[in-house]
């Protein structure tokens, strides 16, 4: 069982993710430079937070063309688990692996806070360590986390049970209080909150462990 953490120029949560998965959960983890195409031997891949390629043009727009992500699309097709956190979520929408888009926060400010989140979807394995409706507390830190999609897509997300987490107090204007979604198959999860920052009681709670543990289920 091994986890890969993609490192783009401008990623800044890659080491936090590795600390959480390897240091706190004991899961073997390695970094994947954005130019690699070799994903062999990996069971799950994390796209971490940060500002990939400076977030030029749009958040995640340039990262979409990284060689590692071309291999990631095949990895997803084969059923591999992929978790995109914050900038990683933005990249997954730009790549088309998740629907919709993340745009500027409604209030314009960068929001750095702990938020309460309700577990909505019980369909995929990502929340097998949580009960449906459980409330988790996780940190957020983003300027462009306002999830937007058209009404047809929102209905599809609801019908498919693909809405993963909802904010109890919406901090950014996201449609339907969405904080995270999965793809139809359920093996790709995008989250604006940072579970890797909630895996050690010294740095902010333990609720993140419940999500990261499911990387290898």
């Amino acid at each position: 069982m091994s986890i890969g953490v993609v490192v783009f120029p401008g990623s800044n949560c890659d080491r936090d993710v590795r600390w959480a998965t390897e240091g706190c959960l004991g899961l073997p983890t390695k970094f994947l430079w954005h130019e690699t195409r070799d994903l062999s031997g990996l069971d799950a891949i994390v796209l971490p937070g940060g500002f990939s390629y400076g977030d030029y043009l749009r958040c995640g727009a340039i990262a979409r063309f990284a060689p590692v992500l071309q291999s990631l699309v095949d990895f997803v097709d084969r059923g591999g688990n992929v978790l995109g956190i914050c900038n990683g979520f933005q990249i997954l929408t730009e790549l088309g692996l998740l629907p919709g888009a993340l745009t500027r926060n409604k209030g314009l400010h960068f929001v750095c806070d702990d938020v309460e989140l309700k577990v909505i979807s019980s369909r995929s394995n990502w929340f097998c360590n949580c009960t449906s409706g459980e409330v988790l507390s996780l940190p957020i830190a983003h300027g462009e986390g306002c999830y937007q999609c058209n009404v047809e897509t929102l209905k599809r997300l609801e019908d498919e049970d693909s809405i993963a987490l909802r904010y109890l107090n919406n901090p950014n204007g996201s449609i339907s209080d969405i904080a995270g979604i999965t793809n139809a198959k359920g093996n790709v999860l995008g989250l604006m909150p940072h579970p890797e920052r909630a895996c050690d009681p010294l740095t902010g709670g333990l609720d993140g462990k419940k999500i990261l543990q499911s990387l290898i289920n």
Binding site: R104, N105, K106, L108, C146
Partner: peptide, 11 residues
């Protein structure tokens, strides 16, 4: 047109 533009509103 259907997408929120908070920066436009602030301007």
């Amino acid at each position: 047109a259907s997408v929120l533009d908070p920066a436009g509103e602030a301007t």
